[in-house]
Nucleic acid binder design. Sequence first.
DNA 1: ACTTATGTTTAGATGTGTCTAATCCTTGGT
DNA 2: ACCAAGGATTAGACACATCTAAACATAAGT
Lengths: 229, 229
Amino acid sequence: MLSDVMEDYLKAIYYLERDEGAPIGTSRLAEYLDVTAPTVTSMVDSLEERGLVDREKYKGVELTADGETVAVEVVRHHRLLEAYLTEHLDYDWSEVHDEADALEHHISEEFERRVANALGDPEVDPHGDPIPSPDLTPPDEGTGTRLDEHGENERLKVERVSDRDADELAYLQDAGVVPGTVLEITDVAPFGMVTVDVDGDEQSLPESVARSIRVSVATDSDESVVEEA
Amino acid sequence: MLSDVMEDYLKAIYYLERDEGAPIGTSRLAEYLDVTAPTVTSMVDSLEERGLVDREKYKGVELTADGETVAVEVVRHHRLLEAYLTEHLDYDWSEVHDEADALEHHISEEFERRVANALGDPEVDPHGDPIPSPDLTPPDEGTGTRLDEHGENERLKVERVSDRDADELAYLQDAGVVPGTVLEITDVAPFGMVTVDVDGDEQSLPESVARSIRVSVATDSDESVVEEA
DNA sequence: ACTTATGTTTAGATGTGTCTAATCCTTGGT
DNA sequence: ACCAAGGATTAGACACATCTAAACATAAGT
């Protein structure tokens, strides 16, 4: 059996590989997980002994196929839980992340199946992130492009919003920026500050926030859908 | 913060006090939790330092008011989860115990509230055990009497069935012995074997099983209710 | 009251996950 | 090609939860 902590390391490496590419340095992982660098060194050592990561000393770490499978399973649990909490327990999408983090390590296969079934096997969670299939094939995490990579006057549809920061999510929800929203960039200021038009409302987003929103170019069928709360 | 393990010790002491009376001996607790006696000694020591149990060396241990409150909270989580899994995720009552054991330490106050709300604040779980109220007042765990304490020809209503053994529960469910069932004792054989009549079917229950079923004397309004699967 | 059986605690070790302090690589600048 | 700066690893320690083996206390039986 794998500990909660080890699963957290694998999930962290999975996300960092996705967002920043492999290999992941010790101090980056330490910062992400809020532990010290020596702790990461020794933990990564154990993960390597179990064949879950490949590691080159002084270089960094990356997931093996086995490690990725474990990470994908944890991610599946996380995203199913987020979807379930939102759909069936009336949670707000900005509140579900921490609850899912706590529960994701402790649900059985049976629970996973029943939750997926109750939801009708959805393909994405409330933040727009893809829910891995039960066979644990790594999903395509690359949909869309980062909002901060776009320029003025582009009309874009929000595909995904990172689920990691509850405050940020509450703000975005209030601003009407949720998966499915169509917006138009009206201004890109210094330091990456992006101003967007959402259904007539102007919203200014700092670069750090813009980086966590993934968008696609809006097509004609993506008519500026008014969100009903 | 209290560890999962400490919560498990408190819950175990709570149940053992209920069923066997305080104080609880080291080896009884060790057997119940499937650890060795020295492990219990040292753990009980830590619990005492935190003011959660009272302990007298070589005598045994019992919960303080604080310790009981923690235990009752864990029990509330457990029984709410059992009810929720049965009610909303279509689990069978014989399957929910292990799942609830795994999740009970990891749900937030918010989750607890929402689950209770979704269930309409029930008073008992699917096994007939009382669900503690949110203020964590210890519930009355003494409803009913043990089936093995009754004699031939008594007509009894099943109040509660212990949730600890999944095989036993599956057997009882198959036999139609669930909370609410009205049965009549037709025979009490040596070694405590109890034979009961459930809706015309004769069922023989070993003493260990009879001990885990709590019953009350059936009244006229408890008409032999046919269970619909 | 003595002795023995049973149950409890102490002593000492192990594995996991974490830390700080110290040492050791690697790499970029000159 | 050197050296300084920054990152990474080693060394050593600690808290937690567990174990086995040994010592100890209590209670029960003669």
